[in-house]
Write a protein that binds this DNA or RNA. Structure first.
Lengths: 232, 232
DNA sequence: CCAAAAGTGTTATGCTTACACCCATGT
DNA sequence: ACATGGGTGTAAGCATAACACTTTTGG
């Protein structure tokens, strides 16, 4: 039971699926392993949990070696992987996180580290491909029912830009018209009052928006089976 | 200087928030601690992860000491807790699971173990109250957009019975009329062809239904920002 | 015939998509 | 003027909530 004075111990790693929309594609931050096991394969950033850290503190510390942590706009725990075979060298649990970096930033990364479009992944080490794909699922779901878009977008943006971010993350075309209506109705977006002209060629200047809040909020409480309305 | 490539190790526990609707209330399975720390407080069932198990295998093994595991209709990972202070005696990570037991069963449980209505919890040990409440949130959300009801319901049931289960789990009144429409539209329920009469007194015999599937399925793909319909 | 419980019909509402149309700007 | 992209108006579709009404049983 819990009080077994004999504490079982095991190595514990943290891993991050760090995602960013770059060049119109959803991309993941990966580093290439030089040593066995999985030499040559690509891996998620991460490392070992230290003695007096929480998992999230550990994740932020380790991520700092790859990207400027201040540039990570959102970090949330995904799942803890525990297959005894997942690491061929030793028993190791790994807790995976989803990290997001706003579009437009280009953090300096180490030599062995690169962004990879999530649709054309190289050979990945361990169970990292599964983790990456489940991170993408989580992102897609939360884009629909929370304000998580703030974590993909720069501080301010036009609707066309935001539409491209959503389309890249969701993997399907998104209509700027309808995106605007949904996000305004939910009061996720604010008009900054500014306007921006597109590069060359004509066109009406676009309204520049920002997200009203940059903390995760559930904005579309699951519609179904909601409590009865109390207004008589 | 310590070689950092050596794996950090820490004790790892698994914990289950086991929920069941009994007597019209959502209840949680808890056992009362006899020893320090938290002697007298109530705790979630769980224990230490063994060397060659996955977390889920470990969870099922430890749960078997409390309830017949065959009676657990659903088990899913929630979250891994890692606050270094969460266990005052030693550093310990804990991975929490949500377990569900169908209504109507009454598994034999040990002396120190009892069901508690989740609305009137006793003093709980460690961070177990937080875990329990987040388990309830997860259950409530998934009842709305998946077929998870199968895990709360007996093999067959009338709509009035199912309505009571949903109401207990969701914590608000549910209309049998509308529940029927939603679940039939989504093809979650099947008519068994049988009918059942209520105890004494009149009343039309109710149709007996069963869930079409007893594996978790997402039935209400988040409505918003879905891909454009391809039908011209 | 009446009470009780189950189930169906109907309407209203709200959110979303689709698409046509109008607006503002550069060349 | 006209091309280009931004934004609004509007209608249609669909799922759900609310509630009245019908059906089926027992007494």
């Amino acid at each position: 039971m819990v009080d077994d004075s004999q504490a079982k111990t095991s190595a514990h790693a943290v891993l991050a699926a760090v995602l960013q929309v770059r060049g119109g594609q959803l991309q993941a931050l990966l580093w290439q392993r030089a040593r066995e096991p999985f030499a040559g394969s690509w891996a998620l950033p991460g490392g070992a949990l230290a003695a007096d850290e929480t998992l999230e503190e550990s994740m932020r510390r380790l991520l700092a070696e790859k990207v400027d942590v201040r540039e990570v706009s959102h970090l949330e725990q995904l799942e803890t992987r525990s297959d005894p075979q997942r690491n061929p060298k030793r028993r190791e649990l790994a807790t995976a996180y989803l990290g997001l970096v706003p579009s437009g930033l280009d953090p300096k990364v180490p030599e062995d580290t690169r962004w990879h479009p999530i649709d054309e992944l190289p050979e990945l080490a361990y169970d990292h491909e599964e983790i990456l794909l489940s991170a993408r699922e989580r992102l897609r779901a939360k884009l629909s029912y929370t304000n998580l878009g703030f974590a993909l977008a720069p501080p301010s943006f036009t609707l066309a830009e935001l539409r491209d971010l959503y389309a890249a993350a969701l993997g399907h075309p998104v209509s700027a018209t309808n995106l605007q209506r949904v996000l305004l109705r939910r009061r996720l977006l604010e008009d900054t009052g500014e306007r921006r002209r597109y590069g060359s060629g004509g066109g009406r200047p676009a309204t520049i928006y920002r997200f009203h809040s940059c903390r995760l909020e559930i904005t579309d409480q699951f519609a179904v089976l909601r409590p009865p309305t109390m207004i008589p």
